[in-house]
Amino acid sequence: MSKRYYKLAMIGAVTALLASLFISLMLGSASIDTGQLWQVLVADSSAASLQHTIIWQIRMPRLLCAALVGAGLAMCGAILQNVSRNPLADPYLFGLMAGAGLGATLVSVVLPAGHISQALGAFVGALFAVLLVFAACSGKRWQKMETTLLAGVAVSFMLSAVSSFILYFAEPFAANRIMFWLMGSLSRNDWFSVWLLLPAVALVLVLALALRRQLDALLLGDDSARTLGVNTIAVRLILLLATALLTAVIVSQCGGIAFVGLMIPHVVRQLFGVTAVPLLLGSVLSGAIFLIWVDNLARTLLPQQEIPLGVITSLLGSVFFLMLMRSRGH
C-alpha cells in the first residue's frame, strides 16, 4: 500500500469524521438547520438560546462520547487481535462486560441510584473481572493468549449468572434500568464522561504507538519477535492491562456495546493496512465514525424512543461476520 494512498485514506477518514459530527448535531427530535447550527457554533458561548442549550449541553457531549467510545473499542480490538494473532479477539472477551454489569447491578440495587455511583461500580466490577481472569491464568498460563481468552469467557458466564440472580430478586424498575444500560446507551453521558474518556483513549493510543515496532514484530510470530529483541511477555502484559483498563472506563460510562472491537479492525486492514500505525489510527477514526452513526440510528430510528446501541452493533456485527465467513469459504 503506497504512502500516497495511505495519506489520502487518512485525509478522507478525518474529513468523514468532521462531516459526521457536523451532520449529527442537526439530527434529533428538535429540528436545527445548517444556518442555526453554524450560528450556535460560532456565537458567544454565553449566548442563551434553546438551540445553544441543545447543541452544547445535550448533543455535543453525547456525540463526542460516541466518537471516543467507538475509537477506544476499535483500537482495543485492533491491539488485541495483533497481539494474539487471533482475528476474533475482542475487549469484551475478558469478562469486562459481565464484571461491569455486576458492579453496576450491585450499586443500583444496594445503594441509591446515581450516575457517578453506577459508573464507579461498573469500573470496579470490570477491574474485578480482570483480576479473576489473571487469577485463573496463574503461573505461566497467562502468557498464552488463547488461555486468557478462554478464562475471560468463563469469568464472563460466571459473573453474568450472579448479575442475573441479583436482578431476579431486585425491584422491577431498578432491574429494567440496569438491563437497558447493559445493552449500551449514551443517553446519560455529559461533559464529565467526555473528560473521563478522552485522556483514557489518548493514553492507550500513545502507548500503542510507542510500541508500534513491537506490535509489528509480534505479527511475525514469537520466535521471530524474540530474535528482533522484543520481550513478547512484557509487551503482551502491558497492552493487555492497558486495553482492559480502557474498556473498563468505556463500559462504566455506556454499558455494553459489542462487536465494535471485532468488526472495525477487519475493515481497517483492508482500507489502511495491517501494520501498527495505519491500523491504530485507522481504527480510531473508523470506530469513531461508525459509532456516531450507530448512535444517530439509535436516537432517530423510532419516534420518541431510543434503541440500545448494543442491539444495533450486535445486529450489524453478526451480519458482517456471516458475510466474512461466507467470503472466506468457511
Rank of each mutant, 00 (worst) to 15 (best):
L50D: 14
P61I: 00
L63G: 09
L73C: 08
L50K: 15
L50A: 15
Q36W: 01
G72D: 03
Q39S: 13
I32P: 04
V42A: 05
L68K: 09
S45P: 12
L41M: 13
W56C: 04
L63C: 14
D44W: 01
L50E: 15
Q36I: 11
S31T: 13
V40C: 01
G72E: 08
I32T: 10
S45C: 01
L37T: 10
G70K: 11
L41P: 02
C65L: 00
M60Y: 09
A66W: 07
A43L: 10
T53H: 11
L73M: 11
A43V: 11
D44R: 02
A47I: 02
V42Q: 07
G35A: 06
D44E: 09
W56S: 10
D33V: 07
S49P: 04
L73H: 02
A71M: 00
Q36F: 08
D33R: 05
V69C: 03
A48L: 09
L68Q: 05
D33I: 06
R59P: 05
T34F: 10
S46T: 10
T53F: 11
S31H: 12
M60A: 14
P61A: 00
A47R: 14
D44G: 01
A67S: 06
T34V: 08
R59M: 08
I32Q: 05
L37V: 12
V69Y: 00
L68R: 03
S31Q: 11
S31F: 10
I58T: 09
I54Q: 02
Q36A: 13
H52V: 03
A48G: 03
L37R: 11
I55S: 07
T34S: 05
L73V: 05
I54R: 05
I55F: 10
A47M: 13
T34K: 04
L68W: 02
T34Y: 03
A43M: 12
L63D: 08
L68E: 01
L50F: 15
S45N: 10
D33S: 08
